[in-house]
Design a protein around this nucleic acid. Structure first.
Length: 879
DNA sequence: TGAGACACGTA
DNA sequence: CGTACGTGTCTCAA
């Protein structure tokens, strides 16, 4: 144990220990789902956490080498020259480890031309001089020389880094037979193979210790080398230069100039949010609580100096008239929170920067504050949509929606998964939102009241506003908030779905699936669970001995593409039966989940998640109405069950044709592509004519298929390999196709290249309307990560701009329906398609509004083409 | 009970 | 070795 009265300095060699951890832990068990290996990072951090917990250092730093070059390699070019290239799986782990350490507020030190151990030596020496207990943690034996009464070395044992051996002065003597300061003399004589420093042949530790004891010092030994007898004596005399060179090189520098002093290394409280972010990214689930435990200790240590969090004001409990008076007396932003119970408001809380008030929701309260609620007075919400819906159900109108902290938080950082108020308070205010512990019957801590929630919401909104770039702020105000109220109305409306149509179809499919299953069992002579990929692998690749397919993490793939491939290579009736069984059960499962989602009034109400995507798209859950089958004739029977509701005349569907390619044409300003869209010719026919140098009329369907796949693939960053795979053509032909394509539409390639380059510089991509998506991985040294980020960055402005355009069209239509007093309403949004329920007698008006507002949602250098259909159900309306 | 893997539906 | 989503099932570990 270290003397508790003295401060403790812990200095760690990051590179050498991470490298040991890398070899100690199986790389396969430690990689993220996007392919980043993390075993070295994990092992190092795990060790460091244990170390901090055990030693409780007051001062801490981790040192790294900057490269393999240092003053030692300049002095002796062979130094460490025998070291093989570090494995590719290790590359990229060091920068990420440094990011982790930065998030943990741990000082990371590195200096050009010096090795990490020189930095350790310098800090350790300074620390010892200044009265610290010093712990040096390194995997390099040269650091043994640093040990003295104040400096202890922690050295990993052979198994890895989980156990460290303590070397104080006595331990060094016990182990090596000499005091620490003489250890380098031994090393110089024996040599160090890992550093490529040959020593005296046939001389090991024992001989070296004997000599040193005999002569007193290395200098004496070298001066009296002629007195050493035997073969080893000859060897010594022949290798005097090597020994002096070794001794020169293994001396650690204790006077490296550093930008910090030991005092600067005082342990700092860590930013729990930052730590959680990067650990989550590296998928270190078990490390998070371990670090949190440490952070708790540190926060206690740091509590004295850190500013106390502001205390939420106690909310005044008001009645209707008093609340109305309170609200009309405010100017500027007011944050408001409705507690929603059973879909209706139950309490309301409001806050300005200095005060908060709240009331139980009642008809009286509603009546008194209705004018203010409906007014343009600016209102700030956190996660407004469910509250807007509750208000609508209660018959209250809402105006002046000025800010939504959860939407703003998402715009700022779309990759951040949780957007609750507590998350935002933690992240942007660095405070804790008071929350009642739900596991306690009588919670020890009170949760925040609605007025206090509003007070936090307002403060979070101010912090967010300060961080929002102007273009992103305008996306919030001009696109997201109007979309939010539109979505609330769409969710409330729901869509009418016929239970009768669904249930009949479901039993039909169930019977069919059972029949196919029986046939399949007969084919292979036993019953298996056709839904179990694991059992299927046994059947396909072991019992039926079919050729092995694409590898997955746990074995071999049995997905539809693979089965279709197999059917060609090695036809077997089981394959077809399996595919058919999958199709039938999948359809039935979709039908069942839809059917069970039909409410008493015959309608399905989805929830559109406005903050769920990275690109700006919506998503739909409970149930997902954005992935209802459409491709096969049979699956369209499901769409036919989506019907016009009672009291309405017909459904209208409207979709943008090729919106992403049009955006590509606009952004790239490719003359050929722009002309294609302005010519009125079928896009793929036009492109096919150019690529294959034929007349548009002579474009065959095979040509059209190819350029169509190419065009769509472009938007996703498709490679020649992927294109060849999809089109089932040779890779060389795919390459040729891409060459021809880019020869005719070169500006497209130029645009795609430059947009990724710009993103690398900016760190984010931007849509036409200024929505941003950060891409830190564009700078990653890890190829897999970087290339994934490049494809996503290629796609983000295109998919995102399309999402922006559709949102604008959507709320324009919604608002114009309302303004013109129409009963027609938008029910669904499926990325590039809208489904509208048209009220009796309103077809012409609705059709005009939809067509116009979708057409003029954005002004691009190519027209936005809108296809409109009409029918009693979704399937019919699609034609 | 929960998480991960797999498969598959959509734009 | 093609972007963006959500859901259901199976499987294994806790």
């Amino acid at each position: 144990m270290t003397d508790s009265a003295k401060p403790t300095l812990l200095v760690v060699d990051g590179h050498s220990l991470a490298y040991r951890a890398f070899f100690a832990l199986p790389v396969d068990n430690f990689s993220t789902k996007d392919g980043q290996h993390t075993n070295g990072i994990y092992g190092f951090l795990s060790m460091l956490i244990n170390l901090i917990k055990a030693e409780k250092p007051t001062h801490l730093a981790v040192a790294f080498d900057t490269s393999r070059q240092s003053f030692r390699t300049r002095e002796y070019t062979e130094y460490k020259a025998n070291r093989s290239e570090s494995p590719s799986e290790f590359k990229g782990q060091i920068p990420l480890l440094q990011d982790c350490l930065a998030a943990m507020s741990i000082q990371v030190l590195a200096k050009e031309d010096f090795e990490a151990d020189d930095i350790l030596a310098t800090l350790a020496t300074q620390g010892a001089e200044q009265g610290y207990d010093v712990l040096v943690c390194s995997g390099d034996r040269d650091t043994i020389q640093l040990v003295n009464d104040d400096i202890t070395l922690l050295y990993p044992n052979v198994q890895g880094v989980s156990q460290l051996k303590r070397y104080d002065r006595q331990a060094v003597i016990d182990r090596y037979g000499v005091p620490p300061e003489q250890y380098p003399d031994i090393a110089a004589l024996v040599g160090e193979t890992s550093d490529n420093l040959p020593g005296v042949p046939k001389v090991g530790e024992k001989t070296a210790v004997k000599w040193l004891t005999q002569f007193g010092s290395l200098d004496e030994l070298l001066a009296n080398a002629d007195k050493v007898t035997g073969v080893v004596g000859n060897n010594l005399r022949e290798h005097l230069d090597d020994v002096t060179r070794n001794r020169r090189l293994n001396r650690l520098l204790t006077d490296v100039e550093l930008p910090v002093t030991v005092a600067d290394l005082e342990v700092q409280p860590m930013d729990a949010q930052e730590v959680r972010d990067i650990f989550a990214r590296l998928e270190f689930k078990t490390l998070i609580p371990r670090v949190a435990e440490l952070a708790g200790i540190e926060q206690q240590m740091a509590a004295v100096s850190s500013a106390a969090a502001q205390l939420a004001p106690v909310a005044e409990q008001l009645d209707g008239p008093a609340l109305a008076a309170w609200l009309t007396g405010t100017t500027g932003d007011v944050a408001i929170t409705f507690v929603v119970q059973g879909g209706l408001p139950s309490r309301v809380g409001v806050a300005t920067s200095g005060a908060a008030a709240e009331a139980d929701w009642s008809a009286e309260v509603a009546a008194f504050i209705a004018p203010w609620l409906a007014s343009d007075a600016p209102k700030v919400f956190n996660d407004a949509k469910p509250q807007v819906k509750a208000l609508a159900r209660a018959g209250a109108a809402l105006g002046g929606l000025a800010f939504d902290t959860s939407v703003a938080g998402w715009l700022l950082k779309p990759s951040f998964p949780d957007k609750t108020l507590a998350d935002l308070v933690d992240r942007y205010l660095d405070e804790k939102l008071p929350e009642a512990d739900p596991t306690q019957l009588v919670p020890e801590t009170e949760g925040a009241t609605p007025g206090q929630l509003s007070w936090y919401t307002l403060r979070v909104s101010e912090a967010l506003r300060a961080e929002l770039a102007p273009s992103v702020a305008s996306v919030l105000t001009d696109i997201e908030l109007p979309t939010l109220t539109t979505l609330a109305d769409m969710e409330l409306a729901g869509v009418s779905v016929s239970h009768d149509k669904l249930s009949g179809f479901s039993s039909e499919l169930g019977a069919r699936a059972d029949g196919i299953a029986q046939e399949a069992y007969a084919t292979i002579g036993r019953e298996v669970n056709l839904g179990s990929p694991k059992q299927l692998q046994e059947v396909l690749f072991e019992e039926l001995q079919l050729p092995k397919t694409r590898k997955t993490k746990t074995g071999y793939s049995t997905d539809a593409a693979v089965l279709a491939d197999l059917q060609e290579q090695a036809p077997h009736p089981f394959l077809d039966q399996l595919l058919q069984h999958r199709e039938a059960t999948k359809l039935r499962q979709i039908i069942e989940s839809l059917d069970s989602a039909i409410a008493a009034d015959g309608r399905i109400r989805t929830t559109y998640v406005q903050t769920g995507s990275q690109t700006g798209r919506l998503s739909s859950t409970d149930p997902n109405l954005q992935n209802i089958p459409v491709r096969t004739e049979e699956s369209r029977r499901i769409r036919a069950a989506f019907e016009v509701g009672e009291g309405y005349e017909t459904l209208l569907t409207a979709d943008y044709s090729q919106i992403e390619m049009r955006i590509m044409a606009h952004l790239s300003e490719d003359p050929g592509l722009v002309e294609a869209f302005n010519s009125g010719e079928d896009l793929h026919r036009f492109v096919g004519a150019r690529v294959f140098a034929v007349e548009p009329a002579d474009v065959t369907s095979a040509m059209r298929t190819k350029v169509k796949a190419m065009s769509y693939g472009l938007v996703y960053g498709l490679s020649a390999f992927g294109l060849s795979k999809q089109l089932r053509i040779e890779q060389s032909e795919a390459k040729q196709l891409m060459m021809e394509y880019f020869a005719r539409f070169g500006a497209v390639r130029d645009y795609l290249r430059s947009s990724v380059e710009q993103a690398r510089i900016d760190g984010y991509t931007e849509t036409i309307f200024g929505r941003r998506r950060p891409f830190p991985d564009l700078a990653s040294p890890n190829r897999v990560l970087r290339e994934n980020a490049e494809r996503a960055a290629l796609n983000a402005p295109i998919q995102g701009s399309a999402a922006d355009i559709m949102k604008i069209a959507l709320f324009h239509i919604h608002d114009e329906f309302a303004r013109e007093g129409l009963g027609s309403r938008v029910l669904m949004q499926i990325h590039d398609e809208l489904v509208v329920e048209v009220a009796p007698g309103e077809w012409d008006a609705a059709e005009r509004i939809v067509r116009e507002r979708m057409g003029d949602a954005a002004s691009l250098s190519v027209p936005l083409d809108v296809q409109i259909g009409r029918g009693a159900n979704w399937d019919e309306a699609a034609h």
